[in-house]
Simulated scan of single mutants.
Amino acid sequence: MKLVRDVEIYAPKRLGKKDVLISEGKIIAIEDRIEAHITGVDIEVIDGKGLIATPGFIDAHFHLLGGGGENGFQNRTPEVKLTDLTEAGVTTVAGLLGTDGVGRDDAALLSKAHALEIEGITTYVYIGNYRLPVETVTDSIIKDIMVIDKAIGIGEIAISDHRNGSPTFAEFAHACADARVGGLLAGKAGIVNIHVGPGKDRLKFIFQALDETDIPVATFYPTHVGRSQELVDEAIAFAKRGGVFDVTGSENPDQTYDIDGDIPFRKILKQVLDEGLSPECITMTSDGQGSLPSFDSEGNFLHIGVASAKSLLVGIKEAVKREEIPLEIALQTVTSNVANKLKLAHKGQLVVGKDADMLLLEKDSLDIHTVIAKGETMIADHEIIKRGTFE
Rank of each mutant, 00 (worst) to 15 (best):
V4G: 03
T285D: 12
D19R: 05
S140A: 06
G40I: 02
L327W: 10
R266W: 01
L85A: 11
D364G: 08
T370L: 09
L231T: 04
P216I: 07
G187W: 09
N300F: 01
R322N: 15
A173R: 02
G103H: 12
V90D: 04
G16N: 12
D367M: 12
G199F: 04
T248N: 04
D211T: 09
T213I: 05
K341P: 01
G153L: 00
P133C: 11
A179G: 12
M284V: 15
I22S: 08
P133I: 07
L210Q: 01
S294T: 11
L132A: 07
Y126C: 06
S228R: 03
I28Y: 04
L231N: 04
A239F: 01
V338D: 07
K321A: 12
G120C: 05
K374M: 11
K18L: 11
E275I: 11
D296G: 13
V338N: 08
L269M: 13
G190P: 10
M146P: 00
D105K: 00
L331K: 05
T136I: 03
I152R: 06
N337M: 07
E318C: 09
Y124T: 07
A237V: 04
I27L: 14
I148T: 00
L185K: 14
K310N: 11
G56N: 04
D19Q: 08
G315T: 03
D201A: 15
D105T: 00
G197Q: 10
E79R: 13
R131A: 14
I325S: 11
G261K: 01
T86K: 02
A94H: 03
L116Q: 08
I206G: 04
A177F: 14
I282K: 02
D161T: 11
E117S: 10
L327E: 13
L15K: 13
D364L: 06
H162K: 06
K188V: 09
R322C: 11
K363D: 11
V80T: 14
I142Y: 00
E31H: 15
I379L: 10
G375K: 03
A309I: 02
F238W: 02
E234G: 06
V45L: 10
E324W: 05
A356E: 03
I157E: 06
F205V: 10
P264F: 11
K17T: 13
E135F: 02
T122K: 09
G56S: 10
V45H: 12
A309V: 03
